[in-house]
C-alpha cells in the first residue's frame, strides 16, 4: 500500500473515497432514518439521464447532470408530498425512464461512446484533481447545512407531524434533503459510480444505527465505516487487480454481514429491555 501511495492517481483515489464517505455518511444517515432509500436510488439512477443529456447537448457534465437530477428530485418531492400512497410507483417510473433516456441520448450522441460501466461502478482510479475540489466544496456545503438545521432534521425525521406543529419548516427541509441528495449523487457518481453511491448511502448508516444513541453519532460512525470500506476495498482491488467500485461494495457487504451476526450474538446475551425507571412512581 505504501508504494501504491507514491502514485498520484492512487492518492487522488484515496482523497475521493474519503470525501465521498463523508458526504455519504451524513446524507445516508438522513436517507435511512427517513426511509427514502428507494427515492435516493431513484435520483441516482435518473441522474444517468442527465449524463446522457449533458453529452448529447455538449453541456459540461456537472451543470447538465446536476440540473437534471435536481429536476428529478423536485418531481419526486412533489409526488411524495402530494400522493404518498403511489409515490413508490412514480419513483420506479422516473428511475427507469431516467436510465433509458440516458442510454438513448448517448446512442444518439455522434462520435462519442461513453462506457456505461464507468458510470455504474465509477472510475475512482481516474479522478482528476478538479473533481476533488468540487467534491470538497459539496462535502463542506452538505456538512454546514446539516449542522445548521441538525435539530430540525432530527425532529422531522423522528416525527414529522409533531415537527410541523412546532412550526419546523418540514416541507422546506424535505426538499432541501432531496436537493442535497441530488447534488451529492451527481458529484460522487463520476468517482465511484451510481451503484456504489447507493451502497455507501445505505450500508454504513444501516450498520451504525444499531450501535448509536443519536443521529449525530450515527452520521460520524457511518462516515468512518464508509472510509474503512472504501480504503479496504481500494487496497484489495490494488492487491488482487479487481474492479475497485465492485470490490468496495463487497467489502461493505461483508461488514454488514459481520455486524448483523455480531448484533444477533449481542442481543442473545442481553436481558429484556428495562420495564420501569428506578425513580418512577
Amino acid at each position: 500500500m505504501v508504494e501504491a501511495l507514491q502514485l498520484e492517481f492512487m492518492r487522488n483515489a484515496l482523497a475521493a473515497g474519503i470525501l465521498a464517505s463523508l458526504v455519504c455518511g451524513v446524507i445516508g444517515t438522513l436517507v435511512v432514518v427517513n426511509r427514502i432509500v428507494f427515492l435516493a436510488g431513484g435520483i441516482a439512477h435518473a441522474a444517468y439521464g442527465g449524463i446522457g443529456l449533458a453529452f448529447f447537448m455538449g453541456w459540461p457534465y456537472v451543470a447538465g447532470t446536476t440540473g437534471f437530477s435536481l429536476l428529478a428530485a423536485g418531481v419526486m418531492a412533489v409526488v411524495t408530498l402530494k400522493a404518498k400512497h403511489r409515490a413508490d410507483a412514480v419513483i420506479g417510473v422516473i428511475w427507469a425512464v431516467g436510465m433509458a433516456a440516458g442510454v438513448i441520448l448517448l446512442d444518439l450522441t455522434p462520435g462519442y461512446n461513453v462506457d456505461l460501466m464507468s458510470y455504474l461502478f465509477g472510475s475512482i482510479l481516474a479522478v482528476p484533481v478538479s473533481d476533488l475540489w468540487q467534491m470538497g466544496v459539496v462535502s463542506a456545503g452538505v456538512i454546514a447545512i446539516v449542522t445548521w438545521y441538525y435539530n430540525d432534521f432530527l425532529a422531522m425525521s423522528y416525527d414529522d407531524e409533531f415537527a410541523r406543529l412546532r412550526n419546523v419548516p418540514v416541507t422546506f427541509l424535505y426538499c432541501l434533503l432531496l436537493g442535497m441528495i441530488a447534488v451529492a449523487v451527481v458529484m460522487i457518481i463520476r468517482v465511484v459510480g451510481l451503484i456504489l453511491v447507493i451502497a455507501l448511502l445505505t450500508i454504513p448508516p444501516f450498520i451504525a444505527e444499531k450501535f448509536t444513541g443519536s443521529l449525530r453519532a450515527m452520521m460520524v460512525i457511518s462516515s468512518v465505516l464508509s472510509c474503512l470500506f472504501t480504503l479496504t476495498g481500494l487496497w484489495l482491488s490494488y492487491l488482487l487487480n479487481l474492479t475497485s467500485g465492485a470490490t468496495i461494495i463487497l467489502v461493505a457487504a461483508g461488514g454488514f454481514l459481520l455486524s448483523a451476526v455480531w448484533g444477533r450474538l449481542k442481543t442473545m446475551g442481553r436481558p429484556d429491555p428495562i420495564q420501569e425507571a428506578p425513580n418512577s412512581k
Binding site: 432514518v33 435539530n151 430540525d152 432530527l154 425532529a155 423522528y158 416525527d159 409533531f162 415537527a163 412546532r166 412550526n167 419546523v168 419548516p169 444505527e209 448509536t212 444513541g213 443519536s214 443521529l215 453519532a217 450515527m218
Partner: peptide, 16 residues
Amino acid sequence: PVSVIDVVLMGRLRTG
C-alpha cells in the same frame, strides 16, 4: 437512534 432528552428537546424547537 435518539435519546429521551433529545426527544423532549424537540418540544422546544422554535420557528425553525
